[in-house]
Design a protein around this nucleic acid. Structure first.
Lengths: 269, 269
DNA sequence: CGTTATTTTGAGCTGTTTCAAGCGCCGTGG
DNA sequence: CCACGGCGCTTGAAACAGCTCAAAATAACG
């Protein structure tokens, strides 16, 4: 059921207020958050350094990098990190939580283009025109490091390995998108879902979490949008997988029972 | 219109000369048929400058840029520019002709991810891992400028506007891919084809060519792969459009009769 | 604890694919 | 020169995957 933007806004505001008041830490993989405003954790001492900016920097270069990201921001579930048409100034590194990105079309059609989690860089689409071409919404209470792009470019002119890394990040996004194009263009429903789950599993593992116990942050509707399917089809595919003993579905908690068979399903040998 | 009439004329003349020159092997699995006399046209005097690298450079900067692309290569129709797994060394700017890019999966499934034409940059996927993750095949006799990436990075460290432009090119590719994801994920067959044709029309026009007379360089099978459809479906959609008076199909020569109606078809207002 | 959103499941429908046949064009060889 | 075979394209009919509509079950939440 489509909800108007105003409804969303009001909802979001209320949620934000509420969350600010209670500041409960429901989130399993949320980094210990020292209660207040802007956390002053430098890149050099960030526990996501290896995932986010795994650059081999000298001490002095690392010190320079610390200048880059001074501002950190918190977002409650449902908050927009940016909207379509917003002026582009900064990339953002997700410190904790997760976001979805979404593109829209004039006629109201929409498509979720990605689910991003901690350590990943968000906002690369906007470099092209200096305006955001998609929107990013927090899927849970989240925290991001602002990376002013002008400053990032300046730094990467001075630090070749940082420059190279920035290029790799952008290229990786292109490769990722091509993978999704392959999925959307040539796989059937259950293959898509299997590929999606395996991707989540892999990224979970990369963060030191379980490869088989997944806590989905997104609804069936959002999964469907991402995979080019209707939510009922997603639900049916889940049920079918469960009947086949591939996994166990408990609402948004998924336990993968047979990774090898899931892999054969998507054709990954 | 960014390209003047004489530029177009020269372009066309060169195309004619070039095509006459390389009328040899149609064999698909070939190495570049370059061998001889690479054309020594500098970026600064290239008629595609506005499309390919529309950077506002000083004279001295432009001179430096000319160092970048010394090698030009020719490819016959069907030649591979690169294959999956190839070592990455250079990006390529298409000087004339066109290429398709394609990703593969272990089980043999494949997906065309793009059709690229003159002025466009190809190979951005490989920066990520230093290995090509997709393959590029010439769709006609074509010519590319090699852009050694290490050199390009070096130059872009020295010339901020070039750096920014490189970033914009990569970002534009990300935006393009997101558009295709929207298409594949949420449009029906005829909408996809209409979007595809409008995109071709627009790019044709940007090159000073007709917005309504399209000469398709790709087969129905390739269009289908790109759009996530079977070739029969593409063919049927063409026929249906023709019956509706939207266009005229003569094999690979398409004449668009009603651009506005095509646009409403894809929901672009 | 009641209300609302999300998810599951069923039944029928639709758009796309699959399978199959035929057409037109072009290069090859008789 | 024409006949031939190959390839790309079109078209039809039937099958099927995924969609739509509808309703019930379950989970989330104030």
């Amino acid at each position: 059921m489509p909800v108007s933007r105003w409804q969303v806004l009001i909802y979001v505001k209320m949620r934000a207020l509420f969350n600010a008041a209670t500041r409960s830490n429901l989130n399993a993989n949320m980094v210990p958050s020292s209660a207040n405003a802007s956390l002053k954790i430098a890149c050099s001492s960030c526990n996501l350094r290896e995932i986010c900016l795994p650059v081999d920097l000298s001490v002095s270069e690392m010190t320079r990098l610390d200048e880059l990201s001074t501002n950190k921001h918190r977002f409650a579930s449902g908050d927009y990190l940016y909207r379509i048409g917003d002026q582009f100034k900064s990339l953002h590194a997700i410190r904790s939580g997760s976001f979805k990105t979404r593109v829209l079309q004039e006629d109201g059609r929409e498509q979720v283009t990605g689910f991003l989690m901690a350590g990943e860089i968000i906002g690369l689409d906007a470099i092209s025109t200096d305006l955001h071409t998609c929107e990013a919404v927090a899927m849970e209470n989240s925290e991001v490091c602002e990376l002013p792009f002008a400053k990032l470019e300046e730094l990467s002119r001075e630090i070749p390995s940082l420059q190279r890394h920035l290029h790799k990040i952008m290229s990786r996004e292109i490769v990722r998108d091509q993978g999704i194009m392959l999925l959307l263009g040539s796989m059937r429903a259950e293959e898509r879902l299997a590929a999606f789950l395996l991707n989540l599993s892999q990224r979970n593992a990369a963060h030191g979490l379980s490869a088989t116990q997944l806590k989905l942050r997104m609804s069936r509707l959002e999964i469907g949008s991402y995979l080019g399917l209707k939510l009922e089809t997603v639900s049916r595919a889940f049920s079918h997988f469960q009947d086949d003993g591939l996994l166990v579905v408990k609402a948004r908690a998924i336990e993968l029972l047979d990774l090898p068979r899931l892999r054969t399903l998507v054709g990954k040998s």
